[in-house]
Amino acid sequence: MDDVQTLCSLAHELGHAHYDDPPGHYGAHELRADRFAAKLLINPDDYRIIEHTYGPHPARLAHELGVTVKVLKTWQTLHQKAFAS
């Protein structure tokens, strides 16, 4: 894993620890941990500036924010109403 994948994986696992999830891969727990990671790693103000600068290209946005595309898309799903123009 590269540094970005490691960071995102650790943030995801912190989500499991935060919610005291049991061992195993349960859909609801995985989604909750993904959301935790996205909220932890992406600042709304940074997102707004980077999207304004580079446009709506997920791979570029993720690169500039230092996260995986999966984390970026999870964050976008959580915030789609707030950023709809």
Score class of each variant (00 low, 15 high):
D2I: 00
D2S: 05
D3R: 15
Q5I: 03
Q5R: 10
Q5V: 12
T6K: 13
T6H: 13
L7I: 15
L7T: 15
L7G: 10
C8S: 00
C8D: 07
C8R: 02
L10N: 07
A11L: 03
E13W: 07
E13V: 03
G15T: 00
H16L: 15
H16P: 12
A17P: 00
H18G: 08
H18Q: 14
H18F: 14
Y19I: 01
Y19P: 04
D21E: 07
D21R: 07
D21G: 04
P22F: 11
P23D: 06
H25A: 11
H25L: 09
Y26N: 05
Y26A: 00
G27V: 06
A28R: 12
A28Y: 08
A28N: 08
A28S: 11
H29R: 03
L31M: 11
L31W: 13
R32H: 11
A33Q: 00
D34M: 04
D34Q: 06
R35N: 07
R35I: 06
F36L: 02
F36S: 01
F36T: 00
F36A: 05
A37T: 09
A38R: 01
K39C: 07
L40V: 04
L41I: 13
L41C: 05
L41V: 08
I42W: 14
I42K: 11
I42Q: 14
N43R: 09
P44Q: 09
D45W: 13
D46P: 01
D46G: 02
D46N: 12
D46C: 01
D46F: 02
Y47S: 01
Y47D: 01
R48M: 09
I50W: 08
E51A: 15
E51I: 11
H52A: 15
G55H: 15
G55N: 13
G55A: 14
P56N: 12
P56Q: 14
H57P: 03
P58Q: 15
A59Y: 09
A59I: 09
R60I: 14
R60Y: 10
R60P: 01
R60L: 11
L61R: 10
L61V: 07
H63K: 05
H63L: 04
H63W: 02
E64N: 11
E64C: 14
L65N: 02
L65G: 01
G66N: 08
V67F: 08
V67I: 07
V69P: 04
V69Y: 00
K70R: 12
V71L: 05
L72F: 10
T74M: 05
W75Y: 04
W75P: 06
Q76F: 12
Q76H: 10
T77H: 09
L78A: 10
L78F: 04
H79K: 06
H79P: 00
Q80V: 04
Q80R: 11
K81L: 08
K81C: 00
K81F: 02
K81A: 09
A82C: 03
A82W: 14
A84S: 05
A84F: 12
S85W: 02
S85K: 04
S85H: 07
S85V: 01
